[in-house]
């Protein structure tokens, strides 16, 4: 992927509900979109935090789950053939000129776009880092929050902390190449899928890994090299030897690189006007939970409205001098053609 530059009309940063609806609103105006999201799936908070929880304040949908809302928005956007790029974060946003932006991701992709829509919600979902003194010294040498390359863990004495799907999956997947594998979890029950738990139990029964009940309290080692940890449980304190630790405590939202793009920020939100939802940099828009303006409500429906108005101004940038004719999907044959209405 790296090396190739993707040229497009718009890059949308964030594939949550507002980002997805922005594809639709831009699409009606013939603006093509690429969407980048740090998660491995669309939906943002709706998919990551509450896929099964009902939402009650989407107009005309008295009750809808986060997942269903996401699925329906994807379906609504699909006539416009958006390109999705998951599991990566936009790390750089550089303005080369009027309506000429370069975006780079940590997945090695580069985009050149005429407009940028920041729909990043509460920020990027990042792994939670246990708040332990000195942990930063071990990060990327002995402590890892994700597995990008399995080979890196070959021959290691690995300690995995947690009881969710990530923890159990990596116990099962890394055990065959690890020198030793220990799983540390605060209780004998796991929230991970029963299948993964059974698999782990089988590996444990075969004597190829150890399960330790408890919680980590202290990291041992120096110069970035972990030698073990101290932990505790109801019986008391204990030590475990390991040279690699993988803590899996879920994800939390951090503003991330947005703060480095030279945009005006107020309390980690991006101030915008309420006519175009544009940031302090013309051509860069911000919609949804990440923006702020007088009277802002952090509701999905507000983000939908913001997407519609943003698209009008994006059209003017992309088609300078061209008149924008306002049309309704109920009556416009040209809009219906774009939507594939038969």
């Amino acid at each position: 992927m790296s090396g190739d530059v993707i040229t497009t009309d718009a890059v949308i940063i964030g594939g949550g509900p507002c980002g997805l609806f922005a594809i639709f609103e831009l699409g009606l105006l013939d603006i093509k979109c690429h969407v980048v999201d740090i998660l491995d799936k669309p939906g943002g908070q709706c998919a990551e935090l509450y896929p099964e929880k009902p939402i009650y304040d989407i107009p005309a949908l008295p009750e809808v789950s986060g997942q269903e809302l996401t699925d329906r928005l994807m379906e609504q956007a699909s006539p416009f053939d958006p390109q999705y790029h998951y599991s990566q974060m936009v790390t750089e946003l550089i303005k080369h000129g009027d309506n000429d932006f370069e975006l780079k991701t940590d997945g090695g992709m580069t985009f050149r776009a005429k407009v940028v829509v920041i729909a990043a919600g509460g920020g990027s979902f990042m792994p939670k880092k246990p708040p332990m003194p000195g942990i930063a010294d071990f990060e990327d040498t002995s402590v890892f929050y994700s597995v990008r390359e399995m080979e890196k863990f070959r021959g290691k004495d690995i300690l995995i902390v947690g009881g969710g799907d990530s923890a159990l999956d990596w116990v099962n997947n890394l055990q065959p190449i690890a020198k030793s594998m220990t799983l540390l979890h605060r209780r004998p029950e796991f929230r991970a899928a029963p299948d993964s738990v059974n698999k782990m139990r089988a590996i444990e029964d075969a004597g190829k890994m150890k399960f330790q009940l408890g919680q980590v309290t202290e990291l041992l080692g120096d110069n970035g090299q972990l030698t073990g940890i101290k932990g505790k449980n109801k019986e008391g304190e204990f030590e475990l030897a390991c040279d690699t630790m993988l803590p899996f405590f879920g994800l939390t939202m951090k503003l991330g690189p947005v703060a480095d793009w030279g945009l005006n920020l107020e309390e980690n939100l991006i101030p915008v006007d309420t006519e175009k939802f544009e940031t302090s940099v013309p051509g860069i828009f911000a919609i949804g939970d990440i923006n702020n303006y007088p009277g802002k409500l952090k509701l999905i429906l507000s983000g939908f409205h913001e997407a519609a108005l943003m698209a009008q101004q994006a059209f003017r940038y992309i088609n300078p001098g061209e008149r924008l004719r306002f049309q309704y999907t109920t009556s416009s044959s040209s809009l219906q053609k774009k939507l594939g209405v038969k």
Partner: peptide, 11 residues
């Protein structure tokens, strides 16, 4: 809630 506490620290 018990499940979700797995994602908290020092429970």
């Amino acid at each position: 809630e018990e499940d979700m506490l797995d994602f908290a620290f020092d429970v």
